[in-house]
């Protein structure tokens, strides 16, 4: 069964082709991440899949009656609009107090109903957006750079939450990101985008693909080491190994990616 499929999708802005010949499918309960540098057309792809942008060719098909939740990249609630968290959750479909409370509890934000949206921290704000998206009981959750503006621990916590949501609700998750390591570890499948699909597969396969490394300017060993470093690291934590344990690959990688 396929929830969402794009066949040979192309999008033009003016004369320029921003996306060409993109085909992808999303199946139930999988986490698919679209990865690409700035300007690679990631957000454009999501907006085309959502039907916001017109396609210049190709088509997008949704499973019949697909319930879709969307977390946009930027939602600047203007200070001119008073908006409590509770009220926001009822847009555009009104939900009961019980449903609202449950959704907020699910994303780890109890007792914020009466707070103003504009007064939330970046991490709280993203969680409220997620809670709102969950209220429609989505079969597919689409997130556009959901951790933008969060610090590293906040980012990691958000992706853990996404994984929990997937496990509990069996919703498929399609998200966009430009950061590598945290997302890689949290995904079942990665699609590497730069105007077209460069490569795709499991995080391990993609991180070994030459196209991927060329795209992110990583050294020959970079991405794989980076990915494995993430694994080793959590492993170390779980088993209480010494932190001074040498990681030649990871040191290598850090200097590459941060250069």
């Amino acid at each position: 069964m396929t929830l969402l499929a794009a066949q040979n999708l192309s999008v033009r802005f003016g004369g320029a082709e921003v996306l060409s010949d993109v085909s992808l499918t999303v199946h139930p309960a999988e986490i698919v991440t679209i990865l690409g540098p700035n300007g690679s057309g990631k957000s454009t792809l999501l907006r085309a899949l959502l039907g916001i942008l017109p396609l210049s060719s190709g088509q997008v098909t949704r499973a019949a009656g697909l319930r879709l939740g969307y977390v946009p990249q930027k939602l600047a609630i203007d200070r001119s609009m008073p908006m409590t968290v509770r009220r926001f959750l009822s847009l555009p479909t009104r939900v009961s107090n019980a449903e609202a409370t449950a959704a907020l509890a699910r994303v780890g934000l109890p007792d914020v109903e009466a707070r103003q949206m504009a007064a939330l921290s970046g991490g709280q704000f993203q969680r409220v957006l997620l809670a709102r998206a969950l209220l429609s009981k989505p079969q597919l959750l689409i997130l556009d750079e959901p951790t933008q503006g969060l610090d590293q621990p906040g980012e990691a916590a958000f992706y853990r939450l996404i994984e929990e949501v997937r496990r509990e609700t069996k919703a498929a998750i399609l998200m966009v990101s430009h950061d590598l390591h945290v997302v890689m570890a949290a995904s079942d499948r990665v699609i590497c985008l730069n105007g077209h699909i460069c490569c795709e597969g499991t995080p391990r396969v993609v991180s070994n693909a030459p196209e991927y490394r060329a795209l992110f300017g990583l050294g020959t060993q970079g991405a794989l080491a980076l990915y494995q470093h993430q694994h080793d690291h959590s492993h170390d934590h779980d088993h209480g190994h010494g932190h001074d344990h040498a990681h030649p690959h990871s040191h290598d990688t850090d200097s590459h990616t941060h250069a």
Partner: peptide, 19 residues
């Protein structure tokens, strides 16, 4: 009202909700 508020907050959000 509900649709107007949603579209005022964020047009993409409104679109994704079928508005």
């Amino acid at each position: 009202w509900q649709a107007l508020l949603t579209a005022t907050l964020n047009e993409d959000l409104a679109h994704a909700s079928g508005l």
